[in-house]
Amino acid sequence: MIDVILAVVGGTIAVTIIGIIVGLVLLGIDRKFAAHMQARVGPPLRQPFIDVAKLMCKDSIVPENAVVSVFNAAPLIALASAVTLLLYIPIAGFYPLFGGLGDAILVMYILTVPALAMVAGGFASGSPYATVGAQREMVTMIAYEFPLAVAIVAVAWRFSMAGFSDPFSLATMAGVGSGVVVWDIVGPLGIIGCLILLLVLAWVTPAELSRVPCDTPEAETELCGGLVAEYSGRNLALFYLAGGVKTFAMTALGVAIFLPWNISWFIGITGWTALIADVVFFLLKVIVVMFFSVSLIRVSMARFRINHLVSLYWGYIAIAALVGLMMIILDVFMKGGVVL
C-alpha cells in the first residue's frame, strides 16, 4: 500500500516538473517560430523561464473590491488541473500514471477546469474588464466543446467497432502495448474522416488555449488583458505556467489520438536507446502539432470577434466534425478496415 502511495506521489511530482519545463520550452519555441515567420530574431528559448522568474519576484496585488479567497485560489486551481491532465494522457508511448482511473471523457471534463478557474478568477477580481473577459471565456468554452467532443468520441467509437475492450481509454487510442493506432483500423473513407477530425482538433487547440485568433477573452487591446487584467506577480506567473502546461497537454492529446506512433515500433531497438528515441520523437511530434495548431494560425490571423468565434465553431467547425463522424460511421457500415 505504501509503495502505491509513494509511486503516485512521486509520479505526480515528476509529471508536474516535466510538464512545467516542457510547457515553458514549448511556449519559447512558439515565440521563436512566430518571430521567424515575421522576419524577426525573436526572444531566446528560455524567455518564458525568465518571464516566470521575474513575475515570481514582483509584488502580487489583490484589488480592493476583489473576492480575495477566489482571486488567489483560481491560479492555483488552473495550474493544478492543467497538471492533472498530464496524469491521464499517454506521453511518449508510456501508459499514463492514472490511465486505469479515467478515460478520454474525463480528460475532456478536466480540460474545462483551467478555463473555469480563470472565469472564477476573472469574476472575483471585481474589474469590469475581467468580468467581460470571463463572460467571453464562457461563450468560447461553449463554442469549442462540441467539435472537440465529436472528434474524440468518433475515434473512440471506431475503436469499439473494431472490437477493442476499452475503446474510451486514451492508452488504447495511443496504441500503448498493442501498437495499433486509429489509422490501422479504418478503411479509405475512415482515413478521410480521421483527417477531417485531425484538422478539427487542430482548430480547437487555439480556442482551448485562448491564443490568437481565439484570444477574445484576453484581448489586450480592447479588454486590457481581459480575464487576467487584475492579476500580477505570483498569481500571473501561475496562470502563465498553467498556459504552458495546457499547451503541452493539448498537443500531447492530439498526438495521443492521431499521431501516436513510436519510433521503436519501426526500428528494432530496445532498452534505453528505445526509451530516449521515443521521448525525442514524441517531443518532435508535439512541436510539429504546436507549430500547425498554434504558431502558424496565430501568426497568420487577426483576432475573431466573439460572435464570429461562436458562429465559426458552432457552424463550420462543428459541421466539419460531424462530416468526419459520418465518414467514420459509413466506413464501419461499408466494412472498411477492421470491423468486428
Binding site: 530574431v41 474588464y129 479588454l223 488583458g225 487584475e230 500580477s232
Partner: peptide, 18 residues
C-alpha cells in the same frame, strides 16, 4: 520587426498590473 525588442524580452502588455 525591424528593431525587434522582443529579442530582449520586451513586449507590450494591455494592463498596468502586468
Amino acid at each position: 520587426p525591424r528593431y525587434d525588442p522582443e529579442r530582449f524580452g520586451i513586449k507590450l502588455v494591455g494592463s498596468p498590473r502586468h
